[in-house]
């Protein structure tokens, strides 16, 4: 290497230096983006742990009784989560009973029935529903929908369904308009766009040859959808439903407006009730003792655990279809 000229020496040296610098910069960049990705992991575990920590007072004071006690007494400091848990589950159940069939209908309409020129605009409009902030649903529910429920729907339900032998008590109540049923209906409107857009997307993944084979055998459109499309996409459809359920369980503002904030366990769907999210939203800033605040955070932890399980199940179900796709 003695023959090398001085200028070449310096260029190779400079090149080496530049390579080393680039390698360092590459390593640094990689570490930086990896740190950001870990931050996502930390954010979720941090959320869970911080709520467990914040709710420790409530969990240690009440133990398991917190889960099944109906007490909610800020004066005597007795708190139990049963009423909000019940309200959350019932409103979400009502929402799913309405939203699942309607979303299936919308997805069917948008993939098989509607003429081509109608599909784009209608699905864009349905997706606009998902973009409206939840507080707008709440206000609309309180000022527009609640009076209608109180004036027309509740008396009608009292007179008709309220007289049924077994389900009757569910539909008997004062004509207030606010209550579980109203909250469930508003929630249903909110989750329809989420469920229907998942269903529409997975229906479009069904191979055309499968559908065409069924049509060639003389099936009607309905039979193709019910016997071919739905079984093929079953796991993803259930995943989409769970995604909507996760939304319905955790929705706060819309429910807070129309649920009535009453800590009472009642069989009637027309009585005011409470949900976990609505309880936290209504009472957190007014909580005047540590145990009260801790109980509300403990409620938040319960909500987090339930939605985590539901959303995780949704993801796994949705993933199953895409894996199935991938193996073909």
């Amino acid at each position: 290497m003695a023959a090398q000229s001085p200028t070449l020496m310096t260029t190779t040296l400079a090149a080496d230096e530049r390579n080393a610098r680039d390698a360092r910069a590459d390593g640094l960049f990689r570490k930086l983006v990896a740190a950001a990705a870990f931050f996502v992991l930390i954010a979720l575990t941090g959320a869970a742990l911080s709520m467990l920590w914040g709710g420790r007072d409530a969990f240690t004071t009440f133990g398991f009784k917190f889960l099944y006690s109906t007490d909610w007494d800020a004066v005597n400091l007795k708190f139990g989560a049963l009423v909000p848990i019940y309200g959350t589950l019932v409103t979400a159940l009502i929402a799913m009973l309405i939203a699942v069939p309607v979303s299936f209908g919308i997805a069917l309409f948008l993939t098989e029935v509607a003429p081509g020129w109608l599909r784009g605009p209608v699905s864009a409009a349905i997706e606009l529903l998902a973009g409206i902030p939840s507080i707008i649903y709440g206000m609309w529910g309180l000022f527009v929908f609640v009076p209608i429920m109180g004036e027309y729907v509740t008396p009608w339900l009292n007179d008709h369904l309220g007289q049924w032998p077994l389900l009757g008590p569910l539909f008997r109540g004062p004509p207030l308009g606010i209550g579980m049923l109203t909250a469930g209906i508003v929630l249903a409107i909110m989750v329809i766009p989420f469920i229907s857009s998942v269903m529409r997307e997975v229906f479009l993944t069904v191979p055309t040859r499968l559908k065409e084979s069924a049509y060639a055998l003389g099936s009607t459109t309905w039979e193709v959808v019910w016997d071919i499309v739905l079984p093929y996409t079953r796991s993803a459809v259930i995943g989409g439903i769970f995604l909507g359920l996760g939304r319905a369980l955790g929705e706060t503002m819309a429910v807070t407006f129309v649920l009535g904030n009453a800590h009472r366990l009642s069989a009637s769907l027309l009585e005011p009730g409470n949900s976990i999210a609505a309880t936290i939203a209504n009472e957190f800033t007014e909580a005047d003792s540590d145990l009260y605040r801790s109980s509300l955070i403990a409620l938040g932890f319960l909500l987090f655990v339930v939605t985590f399980v539901v959303l995780a199940a949704a993801k796994l179900m949705l993933r199953r279809l895409s894996r199935q796709e991938g193996t073909k």
């Binding site: 996502v40 954010a43 979720l44 941090g46 959320a47 911080s50 709520m51 920590w53 914040g54 995604l243 996760g246 939304r247 369980l249 955790g250 929705e251 706060t252 999210a277 936290i280 939203a281 957190f284 955070i297 938040g300 909500l303 987090f304 939605t307 985590f308 959303l311 995780a312 993801k315």
Partner: peptide, 17 residues
């Protein structure tokens, strides 16, 4: 994806604590 659909009130509680 779970963070994407997690209830926003829970994130508020997280930042509160």
């Amino acid at each position: 994806d779970i963070l994407l659909s997690a209830p926003s009130i829970v994130l508020g509680l997280f930042v509160y604590t």
